[in-house]
Structure formats: structure tokens, C-alpha cells
């Protein structure tokens, strides 16, 4: 059983490393773009909710 466990962990990645990159070379710009779009949506929804739906809705407790 011991040998089986060892081979399972060894098999998790048994390919050759094709390219090794440094910390700052990792560049997931697609993820950044997606998060950026989410961020803009959230910011615009906040502006809409607060200024249009809340402050724009008639009489307010003063």
C-alpha cells in the first residue's frame, strides 16, 4: 500500500516542466479584465442604487 500512495502523489504531475516563469512574469490579464468588468458593474450599480433609487425617490426622512 505504501508504494501505491507514493506512486499516486508522484503521478499528480509527471510531465516535464515546459517553461518556468518568475513571480512577476505570471500575467493573468484575462482574469484581471474580468474582475475589472465586475468592479465597474458594482460601482455603477452602487451609484444607481444610492443616487437614483434612494435619493431620487421622493420625500426622505430629514
Amino acid at each position: 500500500m505504501d508504494s501505491g500512495t507514493e506512486s499516486a502523489s508522484a503521478d499528480a504531475w509527471d510531465g516535464e516542466i515546459e517553461t518556468e516563469i518568475g513571480h512577476d512574469e505570471y500575467d493573468p490579464y484575462g482574469t484581471l479584465t474580468l474582475i475589472g468588468i465586475y468592479f465597474v458593474i458594482i460601482a455603477l450599480l452602487w451609484v444607481f442604487m444610492y443616487f437614483v433609487e434612494f435619493l431620487g425617490e421622493g420625500p426622505t426622512v430629514m
Partner: peptide, 23 residues
């Protein structure tokens, strides 16, 4: 809750809910 406005409060026995608004 005054519909189409932001006037919204609970009304609790023993407590006076005071809200002011301009119409």
C-alpha cells in the same frame, strides 16, 4: 412605509416614532 418615498419606520407600543419630511 410611505410608498414611493424613503419614509419607513417601525411603530412600537410605548415608543413614539418621529419622522420629518418635505412634500
Amino acid at each position: 412605509k410611505l410608498v414611493d418615498s424613503n419614509l419607513n419606520t417601525m411603530i412600537i407600543p410605548g415608543q413614539v416614532s418621529e419622522i420629518t419630511a418635505e412634500f
